[in-house]
C-alpha cells in the first residue's frame, strides 16, 4: 500500500517545530526515525495531513554527561545508543536492550525519542526508561517540563506528551557499576518480545519494569520487594497479582504470566551473577 497524501515540512530548530505544530495542530505528526510511523503511513493506519521532519533539529541530538546525569537527545538512533561509551557506562541497561530491538537497518534509523513517544507496550526502551527511573524532557514554546517515566506512559500508545510538545531528551541518573539485566523472549531475532523484563538494581532496592504484558510498560512493586529481600519464589508468586497480561496471537494470559515468572528467575540469577 502507498500512504495517503500529506504535506511535508523540515524543521532545523525547535522554534520552527513549535511554529509548525501551532499552525497544523492535531493533523500534524512529527517524523523521527520513521521506523514505526512510515510503516503506519504505508499501511494507511495513519494519515496525517502534514509530516514535520525533526531529523535536522540539532537541539534534539547528542549524548552528554554532567552532574551525575546522562542526557540522551531524542534523536539518538538505536545504533548510536548501543555503541555510545557514556551510555555503556552510565546506563548499561539501555546498551543491553539495543541488540534486542529489531534489525540493524531499523536500528540505524529508529530513535529513542520515537520509541518512547510511540510507547509500544512491547518495546524495550520504554521499559528500560521506567526501570532507570529516568526523566523525560518535554519541550514546547513555553519551555521545558520534566516528567518522570512512571508518569509518562499513560495507556496503550498514550503518553503525557501534549500536542504542542516535542520529546527533547531523557535524563538518567548514573547507574555506573550498578547491576542490571535485560531479559526477553521473542519468537525470532528482532521481533517484539512476547514478554520482557528490564531489571535495574538501585541502592539495596530493585526496579523491575515489564514489557509486553499490558497496555504500558509496568513496574511490579511487590515482586521488587520480594526479590530485593532475596525471595525469588515469593517474587514470582507476587506477579500473579501484579500482572494482568492480554491474550493475543502468542497465546492466553497464562502464557505471559508463566513466562514472566521464568524471566524473573533468570533476571534474579543474572543480577546475582553480576
Amino acid at each position: 500500500m502507498k500512504p495517503a497524501p500529506f504535506a511535508y515540512a523540515r524543521a532545523t530548530t525547535l522554534a520552527e517545530v513549535f511554529d509548525l505544530l501551532e499552525t497544523h495542530g492535531d493533523s500534524a505528526r512529527l517524523l523521527a526515525g520513521g521506523q514505526s510511523l512510515v510503516a503506519a503511513l504505508n499501511l494507511r493506519l495513519a494519515s496525517p495531513s502534514v509530516l514535520l521532519d525533526i531529523n535536522g533539529v540539532a537541539a534534539l541530538r547528542g549524548i552528554s554527561f554532567a552532574d551525575g546525569r546522562l542526557r540522551i537527545g531524542a534523536l539518538t538512533r538505536h545504533a548510536e545508543l548501543g555503541a555510545d561509551p557514556l551510555v555503556a557506562q552510565h546506563a548499561p541497561l539501555l546498551a543491553q536492550a539495543v541488540p534486542h530491538i529489531a534489525h540493524a537497518a531499523i536500528r540505524n534509523r529508529g530513535t529513542i525519542g520515537g520509541s518512547l513517544a510511540l510507547a509500544d507496550p512491547a518495546a524495550e526502551l520504554p521499559a528500560c526508561i521506567l526501570a532507570l527511573e529516568a526523566v523525560l524532557v518535554l519541550a514546547s514554546r513555553e519551555g521545558e517540563r520534566r516528567v518522570a517515566a512512571r508518569d509518562f506512559f499513560q495507556g496503550l500508545y498514550q503518553t503525557a506528551l501534549r500536542g504542542d510538545e516535542v520529546l527533547a531528551a531523557v535524563e538518567i541518573a548514573s547507574q555506573a557499576d550498578v547491576p542490571c539485566t535485560l531479559q526477553e523472549l521473542a519468537r525470532r531475532h528482532g521481533d517484539y518480545a512476547i514478554v520482557g523484563l528490564a531489571a535495574q538494581s538501585a541502592r539495596g532496592a530493585l526496579r523491575l519494569a515489564w514489557f509486553g504484558v499490558g497496555a504500558t510498560p509496568l513496574r511490579t512493586p511487590r515482586a521488587e520487594a520480594a526479590l530485593a529481600a532475596g525471595d525469588v519464589a515469593g517474587a514470582q508468586a507476587a506477579l500473579a497479582g501484579e500482572l494482568d497480561p492480554p491474550e493475543d496471537l502468542h497465546g492466553p494470559p497464562a502464557l505471559r504470566l508463566h513466562l514472566a515468572r521464568v524471566l524473573l528467575g533468570r533476571a534474579a540469577a543474572a543480577l546475582k551473577g553480576h
Binding site: Y8, L31, G34, Q35, V38, A39, A104, I106, N108, R109
Partner: peptide, 8 residues
C-alpha cells in the same frame, strides 16, 4: 543500511 520502504 536502511529500509528503503521506511524512508520517504
Amino acid at each position: 543500511m536502511v529500509r528503503g520502504c521506511l524512508m520517504l
